[in-house]
Design a binder for these strands. Structure first.
Lengths: 339, 339
DNA sequence: GATTGGCACTCGTCTTGATGGAGTGCTAAT
DNA sequence: ATTAGCACTCCATCAAGACGAGTGCCAATC
């Protein structure tokens, strides 16, 4: 069965819309009587019951039991957000708040955290923002410090103020001044290039004839290679307001809650999910089981990617129960433009 | 009423002990019959009921209702852990696991995180470890990088491999090379001294006559002052295994859980609590309301401080329900010695 | 033919009352 | 001082019944 808009009369759609809206605001299965009064079509409950039966056949709504009202299914929500939703513009008060919050950012020097917190506060759900993907971001400064046992601490700064560090194992011990030289050398040639570009350049350098380089240069290149070798660099995200989710009755079941929070702390699944939505432009929505992860079965995730220098490098999103006020959440997808 | 050991007969203490042990393992109020069989004193349930009445008068145990068994109160637990507990030595398997985990640490280069995770895994509760207090830790390297708008990014490394960074606002814009000089200068005089010592030295320098310094030196000192000025440096901690706490029925109430997790993410209260226990040597235990924070009402916190260079710089701890197997948790207080 | 009112039916929730079990407190006997 | 016995209290569980909400279907109506 295809749930496209065409299969349904204007009236059925209208009813589905008010049903979803009503359910989102009340959280109770909605019956034919309320629907009859809520919708502007002057229809009797009986008529509405007929329509509901049709919608149920199409899998858009569902009855918890014989004599409860109807509740939207995932497909129902999907149709709703895709075709029926009337997005509300961002509240002026909220915009002010966003601007204010983001302008204070250099106070904490943590834009990502601030953005996540703002999302959580505004929506009273959970806010999540991924850190910019390292590879797409530019190298600004790199530096090495000696540790004991042939280990070297690498510190590198990307873009404006993100500081990363990593311990690498070198073949031999280096002195502080040797390392300083290496850093200076690498800075002179690789600064301003994206990490992925640096990685490629370094590899090429190592494959090319190494005759024209002296030992110090070679050591430097090797260390750079160790630093930027791919793989182990996990992307990360900042999640705030998780506790807001404990307030929602549909998530307050202990098992669900545990699964959800476990997913939050393992991070892997969440990262994967967010990664997926980074590929899509604009606002992306996963409703309930659509995410494919059991932990998110009763949750929806609304995301939007953000860019630095016209390059998509991360996503921000809001996590809440499937029963969320989509029309207020979706406009937050414009948040990235405020950066 | 003073709950000292002297007020009570050997027998009463013995009974209290078995009661607490039984309650910890079962989680059910324990009645006179089980107690009669559990304890090696051959006493009839009736006699035990008399003793229980005494213990109840002393506020050591409590009846949830007329005909349920008895449950230890906070004072009961307190007396138990202070005087009755027979601490079990650390399981050999666990020691192996700890050693293994800690030896792999430089893989992730995050000892704190690894320790916290190990605590959580071993206890199946929540593990928490504070980061070493910055002020007590030694400066190894400092460096400045220019940002836009009179802002400077400070990166400094303490001890072996902790990297910190901070943005400071300077009076004017500096060039990269000026900043490099400043860093070199500061490194030459302050390396190897503790942050608190550096702070003091810097302040003294600024108060002394500044005639003998050139402008560059003065700028460097001023930047150091901005970097290490006290106050805003919040201590922090790493908490893992929070989700384990959701499994315990006595904490699974939605409200309690929310309060608890809120406390975890606000951090402030937890930090304060951990700070308190840093002052005490050895293992410190907060049982239920003893912590003074409502969020922890049904939790206990077992902590132990750890040192670097014979100086106490942080604490590690385990958070779980008051009904926890104290005899297995407390020996983990020796964990710091394994570092 | 679409819409509506009416009616029987289903199902979940809430209340009530009965039953049984666990555990206590008290008292009298040992 | 300890114990056995007994009456009592309270909780948990279950069944039965009343109630309300909502449905599905059918026949009447527009």
């Amino acid at each position: 069965m295809s749930n496209s808009t065409r299969d349904l009369s204007e009236r059925s759609l209208q009813l589905l819309k008010t049903l979803v809206e009503r359910y989102i605001s009340d959280g109770q299965p909605v019956g034919s009587r309320v629907l009859s009064k809520d919708s502007e079509l002057n229809l009797s409950p009986a008529t509405i019951r007929n329509v509901m039966a049709d919608l149920e056949d199409l899998g858009l709504v569902h009855s918890p039991h014989t004599s409860a009202g109807r509740v939207p299914t995932v497909s129902g929500y999907r149709l709703f957000v895709d075709s029926l939703l009337t997005v509300k513009p961002l509240d002026a008060k909220d915009i002010t708040r966003l601007h204010k919050g983001l302008s204070e950012r250099d106070d904490t020097s943590n834009v990502i955290g601030v953005a996540s917190r703002l999302l959580a506060e505004l929506t009273r759900m959970a806010g999540v923002v991924t850190l910019p993907r390292r590879e797409l971001v530019c190298l600004r400064h790199i530096e090495f410090l000696p540790l004991s046992h042939k280990r070297v601490l690498v510190i590198f700064v990307t873009d404006e103020q993100e500081v990363h560090n990593k311990v690498i194992h070198t073949g031999k011990d280096f002195s502080a001044s040797e390392l300083q030289q290496a850093g200076a050398y690498l800075n002179s040639i690789y600064c301003g290039r994206s990490l992925v570009a640096v990685r490629e350049a370094v590899l090429k350098e190592l494959q090319d004839d190494q005759e024209r380089m002296n030992q110090a240069m070679l050591d430097a290149i090797k260390m750079a290679q160790l630093t930027f070798e791919s793989g182990d660099e996990k992307d990360d995200y900042v999640l705030t307001g998780e506790t807001n989710l404990m307030g929602f009755s549909e998530l307050s079941d202990r098992d669900h809650l545990k699964k959800l929070f476990d997913a939050f702390s393992h991070k892997q699944d969440v990262i994967h999910l967010l990664d997926q939505s980074m590929k899509a432009e604009g606002v992306q929505i996963f409703i309930g089981e659509e995410s494919g992860y059991q932990a998110f079965d009763h949750c929806s995730l609304v995301t939007s990617s953000y860019s630095v220098n016209d390059e998509v490098v991360g996503v921000l999103g809001v996590i809440g129960p499937t029963r969320m006020a989509y029309e207020k959440i979706i406009p937050l997808g414009t948040l990235p433009r405020l950066f």
